[in-house]
Design a protein around this nucleic acid. Sequence first.
DNA 1: ACCTCGACTTCTGCATACAGAATACTGTAT
DNA 2: ATACAGTATTCTGTATGCAGAAGTCGAGGT
Lengths: 248, 248
Amino acid sequence: MPSTELPQQMSARRIDRPVPLRERVYQAMQELIISRQLAPGQHLVESELAEMLGVSRQPIREALQLLNSEGWVDLRPGYGAFVHAPTEAEVDQLLVVRAALEAESARLAALNTDAEGVARLRKLCAQGEAAVASDDIDGMVAANAELHRCVTELSANQVLLDMVSQVDRRVRWYYTPIARHRGHQSWQEHARLIDAIEAGDADAAARTMREHTERTRQSYLEQRRENPEPEVAPVQVRSRRRRTAPGV
Amino acid sequence: MPSTELPQQMSARRIDRPVPLRERVYQAMQELIISRQLAPGQHLVESELAEMLGVSRQPIREALQLLNSEGWVDLRPGYGAFVHAPTEAEVDQLLVVRAALEAESARLAALNTDAEGVARLRKLCAQGEAAVASDDIDGMVAANAELHRCVTELSANQVLLDMVSQVDRRVRWYYTPIARHRGHQSWQEHARLIDAIEAGDADAAARTMREHTERTRQSYLEQRRENPEPEVAPVQVRSRRRRTAPGV
DNA sequence: ACCTCGACTTCTGCATACAGAATACTGTAT
DNA sequence: ATACAGTATTCTGTATGCAGAAGTCGAGGT
């Protein structure tokens, strides 16, 4: 019996990975922020969060460090953590950055084009069209996110993928509340993008993606003008709010 | 006497800002990593670092969180922190991302062109040329970094600036040990870039910057082929190394 | 009524403590 | 000698403790 041989089903990947509390806290808090249950600007008191999530302050603090470095919360030394409140200018800047990164993704995807990937893209595109046809907003948003992610995956650039994922999550945080989609037109653009990727035409792919994200940005700006501040009732973490944010 | 009026010299900015230990630890460790005193792959033992820097494990852990999220160290749950060891592929991917971000910076800078900024660029360009003429490597590197930073500042996009700064620091970490510069040619490209920005020609600026960073990338790849692994003697943090990195 | 001052409370930042996992060490059998 | 097993040690993850800063509240003076 070959004892040092790796067992047959090595493919079963690390199932017993100990998921640290800080990670779960991080996830939980990010969701609370994205869903607006923790409102922008709100002061996050460590002990309250700890009590709420049933852990000590230590994992809370570590999660806050992460959330801070990714732009979800602001850490003001001596004053604590506050849910980041993006300014209009910042949102716009982020959308510009996203446009650039997504355009690069498209460019690389076109250079790395492969049949299997294109097939996945087409399938997602069809799903999106179907969602539009049946007026399924959630389906549209999901298909859109997946399609964009798929393009970035096809770029075969892990660094880019990580960065785009992060940026996209933030964009969706800003953008979601008014995310009634542009519908059919958007998916036509996607189709053209996929054509360019399939043809291996890097410049066309990059240009198409840039125009696409640029239109999304314009659509955001318009909707923002009509519907300035969506606002959702935040959860009161424990009691009344104390401690005001210090002058910035 | 107008008591509630802000005092005359309000411009004296927050001098008493309490710089948290974690920030200083973060800085210190980043420098140790960049200077290769902490070698890629090395296991970072919290208690050793704590002793070395004269603080408790808490600020160390918080700094490690930050360093992890920015790609300087890898945190393996249950195994601790290890200095990130970039693969060749990853370096290349990062250079690609940098090229895209810098090109976008140039594009925006051209759109926002202003005389004062262009003057600053020209001055830095002259400094770079002077450094080349006098064979001053450090001067060249410094002028180069400052010029690129200045371009990104001119883009008037804070989000982009933050992201590029981070990426650039990492690129420099990977790149520095073999950073004999391309000399005169590089600064000619800079000059053409500035011309494009001054003229407000966004496409030309983006294209020039992309070609420039692309050449830098090629130069990196070449040098890497000649001089595969530079290696610097790492500091032993306390005693002999223990704990091997777990299988990835 | 409003402002000011001072005691009290809350919160952050840092240090320390403790349990369990992971690693290294040591002795024994083959 | 090598392989193995069991023990000792180290290290991480989490919780708790503590000092000082920041914020709150109320009494007294104007």
